[in-house]
Computed example of a mutant assay.
Amino acid sequence: MESDVRWSLDQLETLIAVAECGSFSAAARHLGRAQSAVSTAIAHLEIDLGCILFDRSGRLPRLTTAGKALVHEARVVLHQSQRLESRAKSIVQGEEASMVAAVDEALIEMPPVDETLEALAHRFPALQLTLLYGSQDDIAGWVEEGTADLGILLRQPGQGAQWEGVRLAHLQQSLVVGRDHALAHLAVPDASDLAAYRQLMIASRTRGGSDAPLGARFWRLNSFYSMGELAARGLGWAIVPRHIAQYPPFRDRLVTLSGEALGTPPIIEVETISRRDSPRGPIANWLRRTLGERFRDRRRPKS
């Protein structure tokens, strides 16, 4: 099917140059061309588009109403053209044209993750990125079935049948309970005190999981944020990553329990996972490396 389009990208660049520089002569200097070539390009573009773009009755050319509208459209076309060229260059260089990354909901609003995504947007502007947020089970499942190319999550015990993980960092955790809970009023609580009350635990993707509850009463949830909220409501005690214990909606309603009798809450690791049979492209490798660097930067003491 033949196209009726006769104008060129070069003509659109000339139109934008004249509009931004304010005159044909200034645009010619900006483009490194003769003024006659600029004038001819605009004249041909007006013929091709079937409308007058500049009012030439004054000392300097002024955009007509049609010209103002079409300058905007010209910029859109040129930006799209630049994206096309950038994407083609990335593909030729072996970079992924698109990527689906699945992120654990427990890492929402984590500065290292958000900073890495911001850096990704600037470094690889042509990348088509899809972000999926879900529970640990969701992330592992999406990677296993091929829905996601890369998963970023808080580590679960063991390895998947189809994926393998790369550990990036570890997070400190806190033992928390609601301010009005009975445990919050004990001077020196110990493990036997905890066992007498409901424990809120993260659900494992294997039924039952490898972590056993401390007592007979427990609930399992697939969200650390939900654990924090329910603990704040007095429904039980929980061990959650510290950034979740400090989450604004419920941090003022939580108390952190500590003491020699309770020991130190276990650390939890952040990892990325991908299928063993999927190639790791340069952008995925950059993302994994940069994410690890951002987490390490957060751990370094500030001078």
Rank of each mutant, 00 (worst) to 15 (best):
E13K: 08
L12I: 06
A66N: 06
V176R: 00
D252S: 07
G292W: 01
S278A: 13
D104S: 05
G146P: 05
L63T: 06
T65S: 13
D104Q: 08
M110F: 04
A148Y: 05
A43P: 15
V76C: 12
Q162I: 15
L49W: 00
Q35W: 05
L63E: 06
H72V: 13
R179F: 12
I273T: 04
W142C: 03
G209A: 03
G141M: 08
A284R: 05
S98I: 11
A261P: 01
A232E: 03
L107C: 03
S23F: 03
V113W: 01
L120P: 00
I283E: 01
G209P: 03
G234Y: 00
L84M: 15
I268M: 11
D4T: 13
M201C: 07
G32C: 10
G281P: 02
A182N: 13
H243E: 09
E46L: 07
L230D: 02
A97Y: 12
Q35M: 07
S303A: 12
A19V: 04
L127W: 03
M227K: 01
Y225F: 14
I52R: 13
A203G: 07
E293Q: 04
E73M: 13
T256N: 06
S258P: 05
D277Y: 04
L120R: 00
H243G: 14
G236L: 04
E271Y: 11
L235V: 10
T147V: 11
A121L: 15
S36D: 13
R275A: 02
V103C: 06
L254K: 03
R276E: 11
H185S: 14
H122K: 08
L221V: 11
A232W: 01
S274C: 10
V143N: 00
P157Y: 07
T272C: 07
L194G: 02
L117N: 05
G178S: 09
Y133Q: 08
A126C: 11
Q173R: 15
R6W: 01
A191V: 10
L171N: 02
G228M: 04
A203M: 15
P61T: 09
T130W: 05
P266Y: 10
R29I: 14
S226Y: 06
A148K: 02
N222M: 10
V92D: 12
D55P: 01
L221F: 03
E96T: 05
M1W: 12
G67K: 00
I52Y: 12
V255Y: 00
I268L: 11
V166D: 15
S39R: 06
V240Y: 06
Y225K: 15
D190P: 00
R75D: 07
H181P: 02
A231Q: 00
G94P: 05
R33K: 10
H30V: 11
S303D: 09
E115S: 08
L291W: 00
A182H: 11
I283V: 08
L175P: 03
E20Y: 09
R56H: 08
V71N: 14
V38H: 00
P279K: 08
V255R: 01
L60M: 15
I42S: 03
A119S: 08
D48K: 03
